[in-house]
């Protein structure tokens, strides 16, 4: 199996719990970085949405965590990890409409039960691991297009 393409950029964004007003900053920064690296608009758009939903989930539902952005020549990876409480039934949270959001969050327009489905929809690869009492890890991968690879001088 060939080695993974080398890392062009790696950034870590801590996400504190309950800081709803602050949340959205990581996704704004991710968009800015990707645009600066010349990623095509569709990749920037999808990565921004995946990052925002993941960021909101960490801020709204967990004891805090972090987001790691890894940009490789052929893909953008977003790794989300938190300090719990974890998800008991992964299939349930992947179901559109399912949400455990409290009323105050729903009043702000969160809790539509579309966060995880939106993340999955905008990723080419999406993996979620969780252990109740410990935390959740999500790995979302978005592939850059072939013509974009060509521009950087490397063929897939």
């Amino acid at each position: 199996m060939p080695a993974e393409p080398s890392i062009l950029l790696r950034r870590v964004f801590p996400v504190p719990p309950d800081a709803i007003e602050e949340a959205g900053k990581a996704s704004t920064e991710v968009r800015r970085l990707l645009r600066g690296m010349g990623a095509e608009p569709e990749v920037v758009r999808r990565a921004g949405i995946v990052c925002f939903e993941g960021e909101m989930n960490i801020a709204l539902y967990t004891k805090g965590g972090r987001i790691v952005l890894v940009v490789r020549e052929d893909r953008v990876e977003l790794l989300f990890s938190d300090r719990g409480p974890g998800i008991a039934d992964i299939d349930l949270v992947k179901q559109p409409g399912y949400s455990t959001a409290p009323d105050w969050a729903r009043e702000l327009g969160f809790g539509a039960g579309m966060g995880i489905p939106n993340m999955e929809k905008n990723s080419d690869e999406f993996h979620i691991f969780s252990r109740v009492g410990q935390g959740t890890v999500i790995r979302a991968t978005i592939y850059r297009r072939r013509d974009d690879l060509g521009r950087s001088g490397k063929e897939a």
């Binding site: 007003e21 949340a23 959205g24 949405i49 579309m114 939106n118 929809k121």
Partner: peptide, 25 residues
């Protein structure tokens, strides 16, 4: 917000009652 993220399109005018910081994002 998730509905807007999933379905609002580039160049749409978004009508909403929400008016907090996350709407900007």
């Amino acid at each position: 917000l998730s509905d807007a993220l999933a379905h609002a399109g580039e160049g749409d005018l978004w009508l909403t009652h929400q008016r907090h910081l996350n709407v900007v994002a």
